[in-house]
């Protein structure tokens, strides 16, 4: 599904700004990977680079999606391939209704793939169902995209998009931050219900608590732009108990 090879990334137009310092990572079909790390370790950068954010430059390495390099692809083309990024800070876009936005996203992908577009009637039904499922105030989604949404509502809205778009690879960038327990459960239920042999997840998180609800197949510890430790779900529990400190020294000497 996804293979990251010796990925080195800097901030565009800024010297000596290397953030990712040689990442290797392989996500197989149907797997859930958690990427954990302290603030500033490069977790969010990794999530954004995978989706093609233009603010970064890849200085070395490659990203393969289904065996093909995607580093030259625009963000929209990655979306058409089936990639999805749930944003940590979703942008506010005045006057654009969430409904209209999501239908346009579905249509753009269908167009790119030469598939038939979903009818407005079917889409409306699906949209209403998912609005209820993720627990967003139905009045809210009639207004502007993310404008006036609380932090939790924004995250629920990201989950709504995830569930409607049904991507093959979903990257969740700190979707759990700022969520109360109820919202956390909704996010987890969404991910769990969508787990399938054809769908993979990369869950970027600072805390272990989301992983109480979503059991990852693989856990990576990312520190200072490098993956310093990879293991099973037990690794997340260890981090919760001991913090990231034990790994920072490893990172420094590696």
């Amino acid at each position: 599904m996804l293979e990251i090879q010796n990925l080195r990334v800097s901030v565009l137009d800024i010297d000596d700004s290397e953030i990712l310092k040689g990442i290797d990572l392989k996500v197989n079909n149907g797997e859930v990977h958690a990427i954990m790390g302290p603030n500033g370790s490069g977790k969010s950068t990794l999530a954004n680079v995978l989706m093609g954010r233009p603010d970064y430059v890849i200085t070395e390495g490659d990203i393969l999606y289904d065996g093909k390099s995607i580093v030259a692809l625009l963000p929209e083309h990655r979306a058409h391939l089936g990639m999805f990024l749930a944003f940590q800070y979703p942008a506010e876009i005045p006057g654009v209704r969430p409904w209209q936005f999501l239908k346009a996203a579905l249509d753009a992908r269908a167009d790119a793939r030469g598939e038939e577009k979903m009818s407005v009637r079917d889409f409306s039904k699906l949209f209403d169902e998912k609005v209820e499922a993720v627990g967003i105030n139905p009045q809210l989604v009639k207004r502007s995209l993310n404008e006036g949404f609380s932090g939790g509502e924004k995250k629920r809205h990201e989950m709504l998009q995830l569930e409607v778009l049904k991507p093959e690879l979903a990257i969740l960038d700190e979707t759990d931050s700022g969520l109360d327990v109820d919202a956390l459960r909704i996010v987890a239920e969404g991910v769990n219900s969508m787990r399938s042999p054809d769908r993979s997840f990369i869950i970027v998180t600072h805390y272990q608590r989301l992983l109480n609800y979503i059991k990852p197949d693989v856990v990576h510890i990312l520190i200072d732009g490098r993956i310093v430790k990879t293991g099973g779900p037990e690794l997340a529990l260890k981090v919760e108990k001991d913090g990231y400190k034990p790994y920072t020294s490893v990172g420094a000497t590696a």
Binding site: P75, A79, H80, F87, A91, I93, A104, A105, A108
Partner: peptide, 13 residues
């Protein structure tokens, strides 16, 4: 840029 990237990440040109 944030607005543009958000929409493009969902598949809009």
């Amino acid at each position: 840029d944030d607005q543009l990237f958000y929409l493009r990440a969902r598949g809009l040109s």
